[in-house]
């Protein structure tokens, strides 16, 4: 691996090829905030809270620090005025969905975000995709996924798979930055469970054996 020299917030940084800006910054004690990033998962670049400003051939542009690879002589600003403004709006937008998320509250404090700026949209989900990706990439079960697109995009457990796989796993629960997953899961569970008096659904699915 060859060494790559770049500059982050005025500090000279020596990184190795293939490292992302988040990793390179971390190596010199600079923290770039992340929400959808997870060491064990493929880079995703969805939440954009890790947005930083880089200068490419003299042109500033906004990129996602969790996926942008280090480049020779790159100039990176992790806390420029523009970056802070963008992060503030992003946090405010996410707070409209998940006003009680601890992680978001910390970020709101840091960037002066107003949690009531936008009308509440109580989905609790900020679409970080950690549950979806963890289930697909690590567990290889695909029990939870995204449905629909645009503003209507949401996570959903697929009953046929979730009924068999989720009861003994639940490893995605602690990953969720907003506790949305539990809400969704509880909903799915309530939909799947037969009424008590009916005494089971009659199938052999593990989910109903409890």
């Amino acid at each position: 691996m060859s060494e790559i020299h770049l500059q982050i917030d005025g500090k000279d940084v020596v990184a190795s090829e293939g490292m992302t800006l988040v990793d390179a910054a971390k190596s010199v004690g600079i923290t770039i905030p992340t929400l959808c990033h997870h060491e064990k998962l493929e880079p995703y670049g969805g939440c954009r809270i890790c947005t930083v400003e880089v200068e490419v051939r003299g042109w500033p542009k906004l990129v996602a620090g969790c996926i942008y690879p280090v480049e020779k002589d790159l100039v990176v600003r992790t806390r420029s005025e523009k970056v802070d403004k963008v992060r503030k709006v992003l946090v405010e937008e996410m707070l409209a969905h998940a006003p009680d998320s601890e992680q978001l509250k910390v970020l709101a404090e840091e960037y002066g975000a107003d949690k009531d700026r936008f009308d509440k949209h109580p989905s609790f989900c900020i679409h970080c995709g950690l549950c979806v990706r963890y289930c697909a990439e690590i567990k290889k079960k695909h029990a939870v996924g995204f449905v629909d697109r645009g503003s209507n995009r949401e996570i959903s457990f697929f009953p046929e798979i979730a009924g068999k796989e989720c009861w003994d796993c639940k490893e995605c629960f602690p990953l969720c930055p907003t506790s949305a997953l539990q809400a969704a899961y509880v909903l799915a569970e309530s939909l799947m469970s037969p009424p008590e008096e009916a005494g089971g659904c009659g199938c052999s699915c593990s989910g109903h054996k409890k």
Binding site: R48, V89, E93, M94, H127, F146, R149, G150
Partner: peptide, 18 residues
């Protein structure tokens, strides 16, 4: 675009919504 954004990233999905 509200319906045609893929919805993956926050600035697009939420920005369009707002």
């Amino acid at each position: 675009l509200k319906d045609e954004s893929c919805g993956k990233c926050t600035p697009c999905r939420e920005g369009i919504r707002q």
